[in-house]
């Protein structure tokens, strides 16, 4: 488990547009850089970011070696119902992490 920060309103009115900001701790090693020993450091990046809202996929993004370390991704969505957002990052070397955040929609 690595650190991930998710900034999402706890409550929203039905139909309201909410902004969600996410950041995860990751080196995003490009696979093109030589290490101190002169050998290329193997690639280690996050490849995909997926967000589900009450079970349904609402947002996803592909990430590439040019993405900076500790990727920050933000997006907007419409608050339709109370439920949970689940955020999943998948990457090289079998990396996968899921965080969940609850929202109450009135």
């Amino acid at each position: 488990m690595v650190r991930a920060l998710i900034n999402c309103p706890k409550t929203a009115k039905k139909g309201e547009i909410v902004e969600i900001k996410t950041m995860i701790s990751h080196v995003m090693e490009t696979g093109y850089r030589p290490g101190a020993d002169g050998k290329v450091v193997p690639r280690d990046i996050l490849r995909r970011f997926t967000v589900r809202y009450a079970g349904e996929e609402i947002f996803s993004a592909d990430l590439y070696p040019a993405t900076a370390a500790n990727p920050f991704i933000s997006f907007h969505t419409v608050a339709t119902q109370s439920g949970t957002f689940s955020f999943t990052w998948d990457g090289d070397n079998g990396f996968t992490q899921t965080e969940t955040v609850a929202i109450i929609v009135t």
Binding site: L5, K21, S25
Partner: peptide
Amino acid sequence: EDALNPGMLWVAEGEA
């Protein structure tokens, strides 16, 4: 903005 500041990942690490 704390939500944008990558340093907050280390703060969270330290807090744990």
